[in-house]
């Protein structure tokens, strides 16, 4: 069954005709060319496909496209508007918070959502959020450092 879905992806509106059975990750990658959304486990486990739906981190691999009708979607490609990296991206770079990079888009979006809610999360909150996504390469220290750096940056910004 075909149906029409309206979404705003990275600030651009799309009126898409999709199959009812299509997932968000299929549409993002194959229709919109947003291959920054990686698919690994395809089972809501790893978070490589994490994208933001109205600001919430969601597994694109396990979300029917019809479910996000009328939503605002942010993928990693939508973060560095005008080529200026966000604070989170910058922090990931500074701390070398990735190796192969396959988890990175998802991690960056997860952290972006976390800091949008709570610019100064305590360790327990960071643990709880970050435990949602898997990185098989780094052992997580560098990613946690990046989260601290990004939130410290937000704090200084707020104080200024």
């Amino acid at each position: 069954m075909r149906l029409n879905v309206n979404v705003v992806v990275n600030g651009r509106s799309h009126a898409l005709e999709v199959g009812a059975h299509e997932t968000l990750s299929d549409v993002l990658r194959e229709r919109l060319g947003l291959t920054g959304c990686k698919v690994a486990c395809d089972q809501s486990v790893c978070g490589a496909c994490t994208i933001l739906v109205d600001g919430d981190p969601v597994s694109a691999c396990s979300t029917f496209m019809f479910k996000v009708d009328d939503s605002k979607i942010t993928t990693v490609e939508g973060l560095a508007a005008g080529g200026v990296l966000t604070r989170v991206q910058e922090a990931f770079l500074q701390d070398g918070a990735f190796q192969c990079g396959f988890c990175t888009s998802g991690m960056i979006l997860l952290v972006t959502a976390l800091l949008a809610r709570d610019p100064n999360p305590d360790d327990a909150t960071v643990q709880q959020w970050l435990s949602s996504n898997i990185c098989r390469c780094t052992g997580y220290n560098s990613i946690l450092a990046a989260v601290r750096r990004a939130s410290a940056g937000l704090r200084t910004e707020a104080a200024a």
């Binding site: 947003l34 291959t35 920054g36 959304c37 993928t75 990693v76 490609e77 973060l79 560095a80 990296l85 991206q89 990931f92 770079l93 500074q94 701390d95 070398g96 990735f98 990079g101 990175t104 888009s105 960056i108 220290n141 560098s142 450092a145």
Partner: peptide
């Protein structure tokens, strides 16, 4: 312990910038 990377423009940064923006 973390070691931050400061060489803004070396190969490391170019490759990682792509990874951080979904372009790789």
């Amino acid at each position: 312990m973390t070691h931050s990377h400061t060489q803004e423009s070396d190969t490391y940064f170019r490759a990682f910038r792509k990874k951080a923006t979904g372009q790789s």
